[in-house]
Design a protein around this nucleic acid. Structure first.
Lengths: 329, 329
DNA sequence: CTGTTAGCGCTTTCAA
DNA sequence: TTGAAAGCGCTAACAG
């Protein structure tokens, strides 16, 4: 055992009051004489006292901690999202714990279990495809949770995100409106990502498109683009379901000596910061990831503090027209 | 109060044993009859029992939670690092809480305070420039912490990272070895980042270089590169202290119609995943961010579990020679 | 306005 | 091998 750190008792003793009074000033109760409050505050500062979080959590049954489980933290879109979640929680005095699932259900389940056993009071999950075990676990413990990156009014669980199906269809219609008849879709792994599946289905609902899968990174985009270029009836536009894939596609085109948008149009998804700096600047579907993160965090905190039920929220995507899409020659 | 969730008492009652026995099996003590253990385990499963983390933490004075405070989560290099930290902690049954400081001392201090009050048992901080208040706070509470991204054998606090000064000097020497006389350094904000300062000083220790500052993102790199190109005596090589800046520089060069490496060499730092996909592939200084994160997490856990003191560790950078650097014309 | 006291759920001696 | 009981540090009635 290392030497004990100051407790509420030490503060109380120092000012000759009871621990109840100290507790009151710690929690900002108003029924404390101003003079008393000041004395206590002063002692707290002097002793550098910080309440024991475990004791407090045990007593109040609250930890002021929210958990997020994401497929990957190395993909910018999640980092952006997480940043917003953290900021919003911090503003409200909450902390964020997180774990990554790699899109694998078992890993996600294990992560939730661990985070639950760590004291997380609410969960922010990615996508809406989760095993029944997972939701049962959360329901059983009465821990509120939301699904994000997805908006589905019919979901029993609140969803905060986009209508991926509709957005993808919109992107395809946009490209067709620009005159593209042959569109190739570049997407990430379908088996681990329901958003990718929804987008592909949405794209296909708008027009027949060829689809090429690649890992969700620049190398994956490059490889998928190469496959698309090798097709007999080469497409005139590449619709990438992630800006990262689009960057890879641009590199593949550069290697193939094809100009953008002259010989090939490229469109991305996400509107990551650097897309406006690309040469030519990337036309992409803006997805308000930060707003989404903020809303998820805000709602969860509100639910935790006041008990108001969580509600699904839809965020609109917007096509940002820049230079990488032009009518085909 | 919401209906109580199962406690150890419920499990004990169900099997007609004492809570002490249940506690023993929960903690894998060996002095429990196998038959008893099985009965308890079965009851635990049936009741879906999960121990209350706050109670456990209060009783053991351990939370199995480590905190990381980073300048930004949207910069890939930190995301990469955080991913490794999370993975390593998860393997050991620890959780990761984090907060972002934006490189601002006050924000960092507030974050540490919050995370401390949340129960974090150890801290991983970025860089080595931190206010005395910060370290005093941590020392006072006897919470172990390390500084990362930096290796300084003279530091009183354990540092786990690179010798930024030496690495930058090495990069400059490499460029000079390729024949470059006029080198421009592109770096991120110096005022909020001691690593950037160390690198710039290191570069200058090897040769006189012009320096251009930009925000630590693609747009910043582009803008800094433009400034470098506008110089009267245009440099022949751009040494970027981040791959992200290098990407921006490449975009600026593309806009200016300058070929890489024909008319301008570009070198990055970090060796982010996509750098090998760039056209031409980027020559860059590989920094083992994942290994560093792993080591920081590993050491902290070991320190927490066994009390062995933390030790500084140096990670070497390696120049990855690819196509973006060539002798000047 | 302040103090007393009974828990919160779990771990950990100490006995049996 | 098991149980009883004393805390861990704090909050929240309840008294005064």
């Amino acid at each position: 055992m290392t030497r004990k750190v100051g407790t509420i008792r030490d503060v109380a003793d120092r000012v000759g009051l009871s621990i109840a009074t100290v507790s009151r000033v710690m929690n900002g109760a108003r029924n404390v004489a101003p003079a008393t409050r000041d004395k206590v505050l002063e002692a707290i500062r002097a002793l550098n006292y910080l309440p024991n979080p475990a004791a407090r959590a045990l007593s109040t049954a609250k930890s002021r901690t929210v958990a997020t489980v994401i497929p990957s933290i190395e993909h910018s879109i999640y980092a952006k999202f997480m940043g917003a979640v953290e900021r919003t929680l911090a503003e409200q005095g909450y902390s964020l714990v997180f774990a990554v699932s790699n899109g694998v259900a078992e890993q996600e389940h294990a992560a939730v279990q661990k985070l639950l056993g760590m004291g997380a009071e609410g969960f922010i999950l990615s996508g809406q495809a989760h095993g029944a075990e997972l939701t049962e676990l959360l329901d059983l413990r009465r821990v509120p949770y939301v699904f994000t990156s997805v908006y589905d009014p019919d979901s029993a669980v609140p969803t905060i995100g986009y209508d991926n199906h509709a957005l993808a269809a919109e992107a395809v219609r946009f490209l067709r409106g620009e005159g593209h008849e042959r569109i190739a879709v570049l997407h990430g792994p379908l088996d681990t990502n329901d958003r990718a599946r929804a987008r592909l289905a949405g794209a296909r609902s708008a027009a027949p498109v060829a689809a090429f899968e690649g890992a969700l990174d620049v190398a994956g985009g490059k490889q998928a683009a190469r496959a698309a270029l090798a097709e007999a009836n080469r497409p005139t536009a590449l619709l990438c379901f992630s800006d990262v894939l689009a960057l890879g596609a641009c590199f593949a085109l550069a290697e193939a000596g094809l100009s953008v948008p002259g010989e090939m149009s490229v469109m991305g998804f996400d509107n990551l910061d650097w897309t406006s700096e690309l040469v030519p600047p990337l036309t992409t579907m803006n997805l308000p990831a930060r707003k989404m993160g903020q809303e998820a965090a805000r709602q969860l905190v509100e639910r935790l503090e006041t008990g108001v039920p969580l509600a699904s929220a839809r965020f609109d995507g917007t096509i940002i027209t820049r230079g990488s899409v032009a009518p085909p020659r």
